[in-house]
């Protein structure tokens, strides 16, 4: 079963659906990011990538590795 969650990237919030029981890592990969290049907040708290997402959670993706 799929559950709805919110994704915040920069200041834009979008809604998406993920499989129930998905981890932060699953979502990050699904969105096409490499785990080494982002820090993720789950409901405003920085979490490890094995944290599980629940219905209506807000996941903030902070891209921390760019080229410079």
């Amino acid at each position: 079963m799929e559950i709805p969650i919110k994704i915040k990237y920069f200041s834009e919030i979008t809604e998406t659906k993920v499989e129930e029981g998905s981890t932060v890592e699953d979502v990050v990969k699904k969105l096409g990011f490499n785990l080494e290049t982002v820090v993720v907040k789950l409901n405003e708290k920085i979490v490890t990538e094995d944290a599980k997402v629940k219905t209506n959670d807000e996941l903030t993706i902070i891209r921390v590795i760019t080229g410079g």
């Binding site: 080494e36 290049t37 820090v39 920085i46 902070i62 921390v64 590795i65």
Partner: peptide, 9 residues
């Protein structure tokens, strides 16, 4: 590199 960013955040 990711940990440097995490330290700052």
């Amino acid at each position: 590199e990711r940990e440097v960013a995490l330290y700052a955040l």
